[in-house]
Design a binder for these strands. Sequence first.
RNA 1: GGGCCAGUAGCUCAGGUGGUAGAGCGCUGCGCUUACAACGCAGAUGCCGGCGGUUCGAGUCCGUCCUGGCCCACCA
Length: 860
Amino acid sequence: MGIPDKPSLDGLEAKWSGRWEADGTYRFDRTKSRPEIYSIDTPPPTVSGSLHVGHVFSYTHTDTIARYQRMRGKEIFYPMGWDDNGLPTERRVENFFGVACDPSLPYDPAFIPPAKPGKHPVPTSRRNFVELCEGLVVEDEQKFEGLWRHLGLSVDWSTTYTTIGTGAQRASQRAFLRMLQRNQAYQAEAPTLWDVDFRTAVAQAELEDREQTGAYHPIRFAGVDGAADVVIETTRPELIPACVALVAHPDDTRYQSLFGKEVRTPLFGVAVPVTAHALADPEKGSGIAMICTFGDVTDVVWWRELQLPTRNVLGRDGRIQAEPPVTFDDDAATHAWGELAGKTVKQARKRVVELLQESGDLVADPKPITHSVKFYERGDRPLEIVTSRQWYFRNGGRDPELREALLARGRELRWHPPYMRARYESWVEGLNGDWLISRQRFFGVPFPLWYPLTDGGDADYDHPIVPAEDALPIDPSTDVPTGYTEDQRGKPGGFMGDPDVMDTWATSSLTPEIAARWEDDPDRFARVFPMDLRPQAHEIIRTWLFSTIVRAHVEFDCLPWSDAAISGWVLDPDRKKMSKSKGNAVTPLDLLDQFGSDAVRYWAASGRPGTDTAFDEGQMKVGRRLAIKILNASRFALGVRGDGSVGSDDGSDVTEPLDRSLLAHLSVLVEDATSAFDDYDYARALERAERFFWSFCDDYLELVKQRAYRTVGEPGGASARRTLEITLSVLLRLFAPHLPFVTEEVWSWWQGGSVHRAPWPDPAEPRAATSPVDSDADPLVYLVAADVLGAIRKAKTTEQRSLRADVAHLRVTDTRDRVAALEAARADVLEAGRVRSFDTDLGDELAVRVELVAADAAES
RNA sequence: GGGCCAGUAGCUCAGGUGGUAGAGCGCUGCGCUUACAACGCAGAUGCCGGCGGUUCGAGUCCGUCCUGGCCCACCA
């Protein structure tokens, strides 16, 4: 290839990403056996969002590991997935086309969405809706792939999958049916957390607490049959009509006399019992609470354990329903209900307070408080609890044996960094129920089930109709079960499809199986599963990481991967997590264009594993400088080999003490970088290589420069040139995982093949070139020579003289060992420092006296 | 309430197995040196969060407290 006169970083991304694709540099070779393969369960990015610097950050980390393992000789299975399944895509399609999914509609093969979104969304069948989703995500996926190629991810793009694709649906449905068969999946009619805007149930893993303002409302309940009145405090007075009991702690002497007696709810006059339960906290509020169906999850516990009746007042739209839960005794109660029916929770709360004030049952002003309230992580309004029929996966939430087995899996997994395991354990230990997997949404994997309809037209949920595995994937809203015809759909004596789709995590938890093409390609599956690495961010340990372990555990009785590398977040300068919504995200493509991909990767790879890292353009500048320095230093290191006469140096031994000393240091560097990478610490590997490289440039290149220019045949020249070449070769390979473009560029100047398929350096490699091999190369020689050269430079700078100024006399005082080491490199030091005369003395530590030739004398 | 992580130069951060505090950015000065001026060389800057303890010796190990971030928790 040859060395360019003016090497540049410009255009390297396009040049090399194109070449890598053409050459199949990162193509997975499926003839390799499992032990020869390193497989990666890449996080599939959500395609309806956009990629931000946080993605660039963490995907770079994974790529450095992939490149390292590839150079170590592993065959890398490194697929990309696109997460196009789920709510974000639905939202985008609804807005983009102006449609709304109505699963009750039949599929219309000729359906065309409105050219422009209209005022009212066009009702669309589920399959039509899904087709629109699939069409829209293709564009995103192409954009994403372009960015990843520009960044230099060494992904094999021929193994890409999507989470809504046929293969993913088949795997997801198959795994579901098998869990159903093993009684690891079940359905139940139970109180569930419900988002009133998305109108779907949500799982524990999707919750987040948010601090909200609220108020304790002290409210009087009148005693029945001579029982005393009692005042409770509640933040949810609008749920008084849903009240089914009061509860206090069994030991609470204030209320013991009331246990077993009844009180009446204010406004509605419904008699409810006063009960005792250990969960009631005497310290909280007035120590006695109202149990509603359902105000919060504690209500559910009390309701279940005390076997209380259900009085639902809230509809699935988040409004007070039209019909009261009980028949009221008097007109006042009916009137009060009429005031509330149809109102949202917030409106109803306001009105109830007014009514309570009028009736005198609000015994004091509400006390404002702030408290945390459960939200769906994507939601805008607090979650409510409604009773509904849902599907669940057993995940240890109510099964101590399974929970312990999953905790053991967590201990079996190798975590990087190790402390991240604590998050897994606290999550598993805190599970309070099984995993709710059904969602009342559309763009997801459907439940592969139908239900027979009785003669009365009711679904027989206890006897679902199950398809054969080889028929998967199916959509029960359009496919017909064996033994039925389409015209029996929805008819008494006929069937109905399960209307729900699975939670996005119910599919994403199978990414190792999907990427490995479980059952669809048993040969590939056997070669890559279980995988080696799961890279991911720490905030989804409770969702993605945990659920993936659950699925592999129940289906294959193993971990889905041996190692998990947990990356941190990118923080903006205010130490907040960077995100688009906060308006502080930077477009990744702009960064790559501005600084170069290697420079941005350098910044990313400087972030310690698991550590949140500040977005820092300064680090990108440093990375760019490093890449340019590699170009220039390489130009020198290879340029001194001359043009046509290069061959005569080949095979020469490294004989000079300074050269051999440098190679001894290089050997240690390789050891350090290798052990760092083996420990998944790409950042330490980079930092060590970088430190060595700058010293190599500042000190070794200066010390050896004159000798390296000697013509072929002159003593010492070949040793220098050989050392430069060996060191450059090793350094390029050490940097290759981090800076794939500039290293490939330089490698191409004088080497064949790709640096990314070259063998990772071995610590023995630098020593092998010394003569005699593995000799007594003294590490001190290079260190002392560099120290002395630095002292000479400092003297010249202090005197405000040019570095070319001659030194009349140099005296170095140091310990015996170090003086001896210096003597070994004497000629190099004197030449590099332009020293005319030199002597040494023994002392406790390094002291250098530099007498410069007078400035005017130097001129003449 | 329980747990994890972090606190080192003005800023962003390194400092596995205890041994005289480091890098880059920024700042100051010098220098176009046959790899590099979109560069190089050199310089200044620190009660290593506080207080105890172990040790000949602690940024590093132990205890405790403070501050910040995050995770988890049945938050009426």
